[in-house]
């Protein structure tokens, strides 16, 4: 206890005051009314706008409902439909593919971060440059990349034609290319984010460990693979969760770039759900898909969180 803070009392008075003060303090700081005033507004907001809607999504999923008229209870009919709905499965497959690509791309990000964190001058500046795309809205990113991919005037095909490729594809209009084409801006957008996380983790590794390895004659590659990587395993696992869960939720970018097309070739779970509800007015079935999305996201999060629980075992 810092006695100095209390003005105008002798040390003895203060000690006496401390006892009284602590009592007053405990009383004041556990006042139920004050606690309610401070927490209820925030609780009310997340309750009404986050938790109740989640419960309602599950509830609407059991209904046949166009969003305006009367609901009728149809039990698990919507979920049964989902199981045999080819469009749902193809959207789920596309989400899975994106999750897979995103996870693979972590290796590239990790490699860049390793180089960046190896005592290079200007690393701090570079990682800020890498972060810039992450700050733009998905709508702006989508619109920009629509232009990059433009078949006749886009930057990409201009370069390809200069390189002598005669008929470069119309990237976003080709069902076989579209998902890969969409992944490029995703890669671009999130690079700085993951590099930032890895860089911070790598900088936390004590210098002495690296020095000891160098003295023992370890090559830079060995240090990277055998020493640094195991030491940041916990963070790597966290980023895998982020990449997978994030991919399952992709929406804005795809909705703006292709609207799920051509012919459903880039439809993902969130965009399929959105279309069902707000384009086909099938709120019941849309809610069922939304509920599945929630369950899948939570299961994936919990599973990989279990894996990350090992991170405390690391000892330097």
């Amino acid at each position: 206890m810092k006695v100095k803070k209390i003005r105008g009392h002798s040390r003895k008075d203060v000690l006496l005051l401390n006892d009284m003060g602590l009592n007053v303090m405990n009383k004041v700081m556990s006042n139920k009314w004050i606690i309610a005033i401070y927490t209820l507004p925030a609780l009310l907001l997340i309750g009404v706008l986050i938790f109740i809607p989640l419960v309602l999504t599950g509830y609407y999923g059991l209904m046949d409902w166009d969003g305006i008229g009367d609901m009728s209870f149809i039990g698990l009919e919507n979920y049964k439909n989902a199981i045999v709905d080819g469009k749902f499965w193809s959207s789920a497959w596309h989400s899975t593919l994106l999750a897979f690509f995103s996870t693979l791309s972590l290796a590239i990000y990790l490699m860049i971060s390793m180089i960046l964190a190896s005592k290079l001058k200007g690393a701090d500046f570079l990682r800020k440059i890498y972060l810039i795309p992450m700050l733009l809205s998905s709508v702006a990113i989508a619109q920009l990349w629509i232009k990059v991919f433009n078949p006749t005037n886009g930057m990409l095909n201009y370069v390809l034609m200069k390189l002598g490729i005669e008929n470069p594809p119309a990237w976003l209009a080709e069902p076989s290319f579209v998902l890969f084409a969409i992944f490029i801006p995703i890669l671009w957008q999130y690079a700085g984010f993951y590099i930032l996380i890895y860089y911070a983790a790598l900088k936390n590794i004590p210098e002495s460990i690296i020095e000891a390895a160098k003295i023992d004659g370890a090559s830079p590659l060995q240090i990277a693979y055998r020493i640094k990587l195991p030491l940041i395993k916990g963070i790597v696992k966290v980023t895998i969760v982020l990449a997978i869960v994030g991919s399952l939720k992709y929406f804005d970018l795809i909705y703006v770039m292709t609207g799920g097309g051509p012919n459903g070739a880039s439809e993902v779970m969130a965009s399929y759900m959105y279309k069902l509800a707000f384009a086909s007015n099938d709120f019941g079935y849309g809610s069922a898909i939304g509920f599945l999305l929630l369950i899948i996201t939570l299961i994936v999060t919990v599973i990989i969180r279990k894996l990350t629980a090992t991170k405390d075992e690391i000892q330097y």
């Binding site: 405990n26 700081m29 556990s30 006042n31 139920k32 004050i34 606690i35 401070y38 927490t39 925030a42 609780l43 997340i46 706008l49 986050i50 938790f51 109740i52 809607p53 989640l54 309602l56 999504t57 609407y60 969003g67 869960v245 399952l248 939720k249 929406f251 969130a270 759900m273 959105y274 509800a277 709120f283 849309g286 809610s287 939304g290 509920f291 999305l293 929630l294 996201t297 939570l298 999060t301």
Partner: peptide
């Protein structure tokens, strides 16, 4: 402040971090 339910309430807010917004948008 000192109160019994503080940990639980904190937990509620932290669960809010995991929610995909698309799963709530129809009821909203």
């Amino acid at each position: 402040m000192q109160w019994k339910l503080s940990k639980l309430v904190l937990g509620l807010f932290m669960v809010g971090l995991m929610i995909p917004i698309h799963s709530a948008i129809i009821p909203l």
